[in-house]
Design a protein around this nucleic acid. Structure first.
Lengths: 148, 148
DNA sequence: TCGATATTTGACGTTTACGTCAACGGAAGA
DNA sequence: TCTTCCGTTGACGTAAACGTCAAATATCGA
């Protein structure tokens, strides 16, 4: 069974060893030890992937830990299944709301972009993609009154 | 033209006056003054709505400010239009990636939920919605190896 | 065996986004 | 006029999620 070192995982996921140790402090992962050093199994690596995606979609580490714990618990016996299901539903609802927000923001951004293209004359080929330099910025609608 | 007080907006958006003043400190909004007191116009209210949605989809206040500024600039003359378009594209790409993350998380959550339902016996009616008490929790997949 | 490299455990610093007083000012009703 | 509300400006506190040393091993190839 293949294992990983902390720096291997750090590089693979584009984070620092410090962050990984932090997740362990917060009890999101529990690698085994070989003497002093941490040894990560596939399971730990998978959990790490889930932690990072959880973060990307806006969950806090505490929330992510609770999710992971739920999975662990229900892997054993059916403890408080209906309670867990309720929690799942809550999370699903939250994510669906967030997705709606994103879609709204996306349509506004696209509208803003289109406006700029018009001002530009629409002549240029119109592409631009693939993260050239990673600047910031964005745009919304902002016409006047009424929010949602 | 209707205006708003700080506490009106605070209540409407479910935030504190402190937060609104903070956004002003950070130059995301610039309400006019009537003597000492702040007076918010529809435009400010609209910006506030955008700020909050920006936050919900994961942007930092700095990023949101840059977006709003872009709009302001391009409201005047076409300054650096193609630069702005590039920035828009970057944000659009970021949001599309985030949406993909959310969809992935959603499908895992639904799978987890389905598993629990099975364990429960599938007998119960199967509903649960509408934010009862707002607890936490969640679930993912977590079978073994391979992330994404 | 030695020196370079990797890891570990503290411990304190940092950024973001406000929360929480404290002290003061203006307006409005009793 | 007095009290009672907002509202305002500091100033300091806080939680989350690490970053950044420092000092002490541990490990591994030459």
């Amino acid at each position: 069974m293949r294992t990983f070192t902390i720096s291997e995982l750090a590089e693979e996921f584009g984070i620092t060893p410090r962050a990984i140790r932090f997740y362990e402090d917060e009890e999101l992962i529990k690698p085994t030890r070989q003497g002093q050093s941490r040894i990560y199994a596939a399971r730990d690596r998978a959990r790490l992937a889930l932690i990072l995606r959880g973060k990307r979609v806006g969950f806090s580490l505490i929330e992510i830990k609770e999710m992971l714990d739920l999975y662990d618990i229900n892997d054993g016996q059916a403890t408080q299944l209906s309670y867990s299901i309720k929690k799942f539903d809550e999370r699903i609802n939250a994510l669906e709301r967030q997705r709606a927000d994103i879609e709204q923001a996306l349509s506004e951004l696209r509208a803003g972009r289109a406006r700029l293209e018009l001002m530009l004359g629409g002549k240029r080929s119109s592409r631009s993609n693939g993260d050239g330099d990673h600047g910031r910025l964005i745009g919304f609608g902002l016409n006047s009154g009424a929010h949602d």
